[in-house]
Design a protein around this nucleic acid. Structure first.
Length: 425
RNA sequence: GGAGAGGUGGCUGAGUGGUCGAUAGCGCGUCUUUGCUAAAGACGUGACCGGGUCAAACUGGUCCGCAGGUUCGAAUCCUGUCCUCUCCGCCA
């Protein structure tokens, strides 16, 4: 969330930002109520001060009648304070609720627009889109042909949107995980396996809505726990309420978790097969930085994503996300869209990774700060996240791009150390 | 899952209703002396939110796991809850 003082001092900029993002939170009302709240807080503190003064004097008063008189005075002051405090707290709650709906400010260079169709292409991978001399199959057909991916079985067992992976597909899946983790370790990331569940409050801090009709999150009945949609949630939670020292920043973490998403309302040909599923494994990059470091680290994450997909010899393009498609927490976001030859009629780009700089939007909600030497107090860190590999989508890209005419799959060179073969099937 | 013990400042650890935001030690900072891969002494040293100031000084409030309650007043009493440790049970 944005700082309250920042909102008050920059109302016009905040309003413009909301407009560019296509949302309309109650900014005016926020400002009005916050100004009232501040005054009320002053009154509460003054009453409290006087009550404290009276209480203190009672301890030093010997005369019994005098003590009783002061007690009565103290009671009166506390009652008045409590009444005002309640008014203040109600107000505060309302203000906080509005504050949570105000999105992060957007990077000044983020392209303007409301639809992902308007995302700005800013780069391409090393490998050009392949010309097939046969009709490429999509991953669903390939997966069934080899007995690698079992959707009907998962539908019986769990439901639509789940899958069993079998045989060589399991080896491919594990190889991709190891490949991604190793590449990140080389680049200074701390590999971390996180819980797959997290508390509602952490979800909210990261910017997810854990419950309610609009939610994309599975929640566990009779608990305050949810299945995480990404390790971003648990890694943010890991440091919630913590104060880091500046010399440990930037902190780079490679989180491995399962990801669970209800994907309410998503269906159709574009989400066929593994593209949009309720559960997948993901190797996620997460970073905590100082405010000065975050832009550069965002570039770093984007470059790593490119390097990984170049190593996997998959053609892709990079898009700079338009303001209206950023989501609440992101200041700027890049997506990698891999070429998926089996998608649509003649192949389409499909999102495989996404990296966001969330500046201090998440850290303010989760209270993650750092201490700077020689400076009083603390500041909020910046948080960034980026997909290294989302297994289900990476698998689509591998199967569809590296398929041979006979349906076998060529393993890209960089992956061979992790799977010990040159092709599958 | 059952029983017990405990959660206090960067750390260790006192503190069972009023002058406790909190004794003491360690650590840390400044200074002094000596002098050099070190020691001693003096003084100082929590965080957060606000007012105030160019900045300070100064100043109000809050904080002893968390949330409630009792009271004029709570680190101290009561309730709930979370976490840690020990023992038992169960188990991959």
């Amino acid at each position: 969330m944005l700082d309250r003082k920042f909102i008050i001092d920059n109302v016009d900029a905040v309003l413009r930002n909301c407009k560019e993002r296509g949302v309309n939170p109650e900014i005016k009302r926020f400002v009005d109520l916050e100004l009232i709240r501040r005054e009320k807080l002053q009154e509460v503190e003054e009453l409290n001060r006087r009550a404290n003064e009276v209480s203190k004097s009672i301890g030093q008063t010997k005369d019994a009648a005098e003590r009783e008189a002061r007690k009565e005075q103290g009671r009166q002051l506390r009652d008045d304070k409590d009444r005002l405090q309640r008014e203040h707290d109600d107000l505060d709650q309302t203000i906080h609720a509005i504050q949570m709906t105000i999105p992060n400010m957007a990077h000044p260079d983020a392209p303007l627009g409301y639809s992902d169709q308007q995302n700005l292409e800013v780069g391409r991978g090393k490998h050009p889109v392949r010309k097939f001399d046969f009709k490429p199959l999509d991953h669903v057909v390939l997966g069934e042909k080899h007995g690698w991916i079992d959707f009907p079985g998962a539908a019986r067992t769990t439901g639509n949107g789940f899958y069993f992976l079998k045989g060589q597909m399991v080896l491919l899946d594990l190889a991709l995980q190891q490949f991604a983790v190793n590449e990140l370790v080389k680049r200074g990331f701390l590999p971390t396996i996180t819980p797959d569940l997290a508390q509602d409050s952490i979800l909210e801090g990261i910017g997810f809505m854990p419950r309610g009709p609009e939610t994309q999150v599975y929640s566990i009945e009779d608990t305050n726990l949810c299945l995480v949609g990404t390790a971003e949630i648990t890694l943010g939670g890991l440091y919630s309420g913590q104060v880091l020292s500046e010399d440990e920043l930037p902190l780079r973490i490679a989180g491995i978790s399962h990801c669970y998403r209800t994907e309410a309302g998503a269906a159709g040909r574009a989400s066929r097969g593994l593209y949009r599923v309720h559960q997948f494994t993901k190797v996620e990059m997460f970073a905590f930085t100082t405010p000065e470091q975050s832009d550069a680290l965002h570039e770093e994450l984007r470059v790593i994503e490119c390097e990984l997909f170049d190593l996997l010899e998959i053609p892709y393009r990079v898009v700079d996300t338009v303001t209206g498609d950023l989501g609440g927490p992101a200041y700027r976001k890049y997506d990698l869209e891999a070429w998926m030859p089996g998608r649509g009629d003649n192949g389409e780009w499909g999102e495989v990774t996404s990296t966001s700089n969330c500046t201090d939007y998440q850290s303010r909600r989760l209270d993650i700060r750092f201490k700077r030497d020689g400076e009083k107090g603390t500041r909020f860190v910046h948080t960034l996240n980026g997909t290294a590999l989302a297994l289900s989508r990476a698998v689509i890209a591998i199967l569809e791009n590296h398929q041979n005419a006979d349906g076998s799959i060529r393993i890209p060179t960089a992956l061979r150390p992790y799977i010990n073969c040159e092709s599958l099937g």
